[in-house]
Design a protein around this nucleic acid. Structure first.
Length: 487
RNA sequence: GGCUCGUUGGAGAAGCGGCUUAACUCACCGCCCUUUCAAGGCGGCAUUCACGGGUUCGAAUCCCGUACGAGUCACCA
């Protein structure tokens, strides 16, 4: 099924511009991209904007920003153009019209004048009779005269595709093998809405066919749309593409992620803001539903492209685990250049009010460097480094307990005196001072370090103490020690 | 409810009839290293693959049924 393709592989991701790019969409786009690049094909970005009521002003731009951040460059489509454009539905209305005419003239589709109220009544009657609702098809038999009369009345109409009875529509899904539906379970469905705009099922099929899409890769929620789209392909005598239906991404309760689900962070934009690295997000997303042949976990984009295949995509939904994403992001941060992380950290420090427009970059770099190896995402830098920027240190119960230990008074006083005399105040000389304090007081290990750390930072956990004290600055450290000693 | 898909540990998952006494990763729990704190290293964590039948010398792997879960049933995509 996979392997070498005789013609150029062409895949598309076709979101509807109704909101922000969320992780489900980002993963679908990623999988489309990986497969396309693996086979040297063309990756296309198309916008499915047929629902005027739900379209959002800046959504399209937001999607593009998200994809650019992810590094999923499209070869053809909105903004970049291509020979099969235009690439948004609303610019393709005349294209659709031609095919609508064809299918109406051939009798494969017909106008339907049923009102919403009538359809609602049909639906309720079916439910009352304990039947499965399916459009009755009553407008199918209208004569030309009757249609003309209804048109003359100014009645609104939709166009429905006539579903052939007793047929089986099936396809060989690249992920799920054969899936089949009986046509008898499907009523004549609307392909053109009363506002004259085609529905998704029609537009997407016409676009895919005309744009010579070879593989359609999308979420599992589209499985039940597929037989309808197959009917459209059939109505025009087009060869359908290959389909792959990806497993859903689930929240921790095992339900499909809804866009208003607040249990996990949903939007790519938010990950960018929090200081997740795109490579980490892509890597994590790739592992949600797909698994490599070996034991490797961390992959560059090129490695993902090389190793990706649909026969290693699982069929069951995957629960989104923020823990693992955080771990992975931490791995990437650790491996990243310090400068890059510093650039990402600066806005967070500024936003917290810790540094202004002018700041000492070398100092900030040392600060970031202190925390870089332990950060899960860059936004953490603000909370992690808070104690560098506050005047008052808050001591919690745990901290107070450390300061109440017997070694604390002697250690703190000795250390204060030692660093006050230091000619140079650096991480190294601080280390030496601590050693001297140890000799003088006889306290070592936790008895020595913990009171010092807690008095100076208020925290019982933290990074390298010598560097922390150095970055804090001598004056601040002495002041904080004095506060404790005098209290 | 109909249709469709799925079910291996807390999470992602490997496994494709014997090489599995079920990989690997995250989380969790220990230990080691570090005079503190992290990072790191090491080890533990499913006698069992939703359940019940069957096929087979042999099944997590094939078949059937049941249960459970999910998706979808729009003039939304």
């Amino acid at each position: 099924m996979e392997g070498v393709f005789p013609v150029t592989v062409r895949l598309r991701f076709a979101p509807s511009p109704t909101g922000h790019l969320h992780i489900g969409g980002a993963r679908t786009a990623l999988f489309n991209y990986l497969f396309t690049k693996k086979h040297g094909g063309t990756y296309i970005l198309r916008i499915e904007d047929t629902d005027l009521t739900r379209n959002k002003e800046n959504a399209e731009q937001g999607f593009m920003n998200g994809f650019r951040w992810q590094g999923l460059a499209w070869d053809e489509g909105v903004e970049v153009g291509g020979e099969y454009g235009p690439y948004t539905c609303m610019e393709r209305l005349d294209v659709y019209q031609e095919y609508i005419n064809k299918v109406v003239e051939s009798g494969a589709a017909y106008p339907c004048y049923c009102t919403e109220a009538e359809l609602e009544a049909e639906r309720e009657a079916a439910i009352a009779n304990n039947e499965v609702y399916k459009y009755s098809g009553k407008c199918r038999h209208l004569t030309a005269d009757e249609r003309a009369a209804l048109d003359a009345e100014g009645r609104k109409k939709t166009i429905r595709l006539q579903v052939k009875p007793d047929r089986v529509y099936k396809w060989d899904d690249m992920i799920r093998d054969t899936i089949e539906f009986e046509s008898n379970g499907i009523g004549d469905f609307v392909i053109v809405k009363s506002d004259g705009i085609p529905t998704y099922n029609f537009a997407v099929t016409v676009d895919d066919a005309l744009m010579k899409i070879t593989h359609v890769v999308r979420g599992e929620e589209h499985i039940s749309n597929t037989p309808r789209q197959l009917m459209v392909y059939e109505a025009f005598g087009w060869e359908p593409p290959l389909f792959a239906h990806l497993p859903l991404i689930l929240n921790e309760t095992g339900k499909k992620l809804s866009k208003r689900d607040e249990s996990i962070i949903q939007f790519i934009e938010q990950y960018e803001e929090l200081g997740y690295l795109p490579e980490a997000v892509n890597n994590f997303l790739a592992l949600l539903g797909w698994s490599p042949a070996g034991e490797q976990e961390i992959f560059t984009m090129d490695e993902l492209i090389e190793q990706f295949s649909f026969d290693r995509v699982s069929k069951s939904g995957a629960i989104f685990d923020t823990n693992k994403l955080n771990w992975m992001n931490g791995q990437y941060i650790k491996a990243a250049d310090l400068d890059r992380i510093v650039d990402l950290a600066i806005p967070h420090l500024q936003k917290a009010g810790y540094i202004g427009a002018d700041f000492d970059r070398a100092w900030v770099a040392e600060l970031v460097s202190l925390y870089k190896d332990g950060m899960l995402y860059v936004a953490e830098i603000a909370a992690l480094s808070e104690m560098f920027f506050t005047e008052e240190v808050a001591y919690d119960e745990e901290a107070k307990a450390v300061l109440a230990e017997e070694s604390a008074p002697a250690v703190l006083a000795a250390f204060r005196d030692k660093i006050a005399e230091l000619e140079e105040y650096t991480a190294d000389t601080i280390k030496g001072a601590l050693k001297d304090v140890q000799k003088e007081t006889g306290f070592k290990g936790a008895k020595l370090f913990m009171p010092t750390r807690v008095a100076a930072t208020g925290q019982t956990h933290g990074r390298d103490l010598n560097v922390t004290l150095y970055l804090l600055g001598r004056d601040k450290v002495i002041a904080r020690l004095n506060n404790i000693i005098e209290a």
